[in-house]
Structures are given as structure tokens and as C-alpha cells.
Amino acid sequence: MKSSNIGGQAVMEGIMMRHGDSYSIAVRKPDHEIEVRVKPYQSLIQNKKILSLPIIRGAISFFDSLIIGTKCLMYSASFFEDEEEDDKEKAKKTEEEQKRQEKWLMYGTVGFSIVLSVAIFMMLPYFLTNLLRHLISSHVILSLVESVVRVAIFLLYLFIVSHMKDIQRTFEYHGAEHKCINCIEHGHALTIENVRDSSREHKRCGTSFLFYVMIVSAILLMFVRVNSPVLRIVVRLLLLPVIAGISYEIIRMAGRSDNKFVNALSKPGLMIQHMTTREPDEEEIQVAIEAVEAVFNWKTYLAENFDYDIEDGEGKKSFSEAYE
């Protein structure tokens, strides 16, 4: 495996793919045509020195992903709104007003998502564990219990979401995203057949990232001892960027290495991905391929990193050999 540094996200009836300084959104519209849009990628922080600093770059990347992901979700959802209602609204508003409203809606959505995630996955486990404080005096044991509760809530959340009918299609696109990236990174032409045969598990997945967030937070909180209940909450909030940054570094390392220890470390996250990905159909794979090709020259990548001939469109290794 050779990391391509391409990443993505499933959206409504489509996929976002990001590579370098641009990202694409490919959406299967109600008329079954595929709409592809390419936009420049701009980080919240433009300073390259800051973006190269370990841990800090991870925290920034986390917030960047939230903003871009929300933008892409809103864009994909726009194809499925009631057309008549949409036309009436557009007639009442100027283009500038629409952009302003969309901007504030996006920031509101990101803010609400962050608050809700912190409340469910950070604060709720703390408050539930705090009920046992009069029974358990050991700080280490309390921290372990809080971590177990946090992981349990996370897994329960994924289990419930994965069984919602409305989300099944999105998880199929999530699977198509992973399969495309795996296909390229294992040295194979980006064809429907090769993508279909690829794995839907990937070490750089956001699901794995969230799992590492749980583990890293468990370890860090074991070493933080605060007597004040208010300060315990404050500390958990202040540690969030650090936790996100460390988790990012783990994911980054996992995506670049086939070391046995790293692979073992990645196993739990890969197993959880069975809840957040589904096998895609041919139409979903086509959308994923178009999203990749809009921002990434996979033929050049294969020629530079694998035994692949651009003119013949073939490599010497068969697909099955790459997984043996």
C-alpha cells in the first residue's frame, strides 16, 4: 500500500473527495445525471509553518473537515429540495442574501454539531460516571469507567444510526469512497471492476479517527487530576483540540505504514467501519470514480508509485496478488 493523500466523505447521494489544494463533490441528481463540482481548498489557518506542526495541524484539520463537510452536505442536499418552493424563495432573495444565509446556516450547523458531540460523547459520560464518585475513590478507576461509558455510548450511537433506513444510501457511498482510495493505493486502475473488488475498510477513515479520540481522551484524562467539578468540565473542553490533534497524528501514521504494530493498532477502527460502510452498487461506484478523477490524476500516481503503464492502462500485478 502507498498513501495517496486523498481523502473523502459521503454526502447525500454523492461523495466529496479532497486532494492537495482542491476538493470535488460528485452528486447523483434526481434525473440520474452526475453533477461534479470542483472548489479550491482553503484552511482556516493559511500559515504553512503552523500547518506543519504536529498535533496543532491535526486540531486545525479537524475543524477544516467539519466546515468543508458541512458545505458539501448542504450542496448535495440542494439537489433534492422541493423545486417549486426553492424557486419562490429564490425569487424573493437576491444572490447575495442567499449566500449570506447559507454562510450563517453552515456556521450554525457546525457550531451545533460541535456542541452536540461534546455534550453526548464528552460531558454525558463524565456526568454518568460522576454518580459513582461516592462509591469509587480511585481516580484511575473512575477514569477507566468514564472511558468505558464513552466508548459504549459511541458504539450505541453508531449501531442506532447504522440501522436507520435513510442513512443506508449514505453508508453505501461511504463504502464506495473507501473502495476507490484502496483501489488506487494498492496499485490498480480505477475501474468499476477493480473498485468493486477492493476493501471498504480504510485506516484513515473518520470513523477510526473518532475511535482514537475516545482512546486518547481516556489516556489523557487519567493523568489529569482536578478536585473542582467545574474545573473538570473546563479541562475536558480545553483538552479537545489536543485530543483531536493526537488522534490525527495516529491516523496519519496508520495511513502511511504497513507496520504490524500499526496494523494491529488500526484493527478496532477498521472493525467499527463495518457499521458505517455498506457495499455500494455500480452507480454509486461511478459517482465515487468521478469525484476522484476531478481532483486526482490516478494514472500518473500509479505510474510513479507502481509498475503501471499509462499508455497501455495496465500494471504487471494482478489485483489478487496485491492482497496476498
Rank of each mutant, 00 (worst) to 15 (best):
E177I: 12
E177C: 04
K179R: 14
C183H: 05
C183N: 11
C183R: 06
C183L: 07
I184V: 14
E185N: 09
H186Q: 11
H186N: 15
A189R: 11
A189P: 11
L190G: 11
L190T: 01
T191R: 09
I192D: 14
N194E: 04
N194I: 06
V195L: 04
V195I: 13
D197R: 15
D197L: 12
S199Y: 11
E201Q: 13
E201R: 10
K203D: 01
R204L: 12
R204G: 13
C205P: 11
T207V: 03
S208P: 12
F209N: 02
F209R: 01
L210S: 12
F211R: 02
V213C: 08
M214W: 02
M214T: 05
S217C: 03
S217V: 00
A218N: 01
A218Y: 10
A218Q: 03
L220F: 07
L220D: 01
L221E: 03
M222K: 00
F223E: 08
F223G: 10
R225D: 08
V226E: 13
S228P: 06
P229Q: 06
V230G: 04
L231F: 15
L237P: 00
A244H: 06
R252L: 12
G255L: 06
S257K: 03
K260Y: 08
K260H: 10
A264S: 13
A264E: 02
A264C: 11
L265T: 03
K267Y: 13
K267G: 01
P268N: 10
L270T: 14
L270F: 11
M271N: 03
M271H: 05
M271Q: 07
Q273Y: 11
M275S: 04
M275L: 15
T276R: 05
T277E: 07
T277K: 00
P280W: 06
E284G: 08
I289Q: 05
E290Y: 06
A291Y: 10
V292H: 10
E293P: 00
A294M: 10
V295M: 10
V295D: 12
W298M: 01
T300F: 08
T300Y: 08
Y301C: 04
L302S: 08
E304T: 07
N305G: 06
F306G: 09
Y308S: 09
D309F: 12
D309V: 07
D309R: 03
E311I: 13
E311V: 14
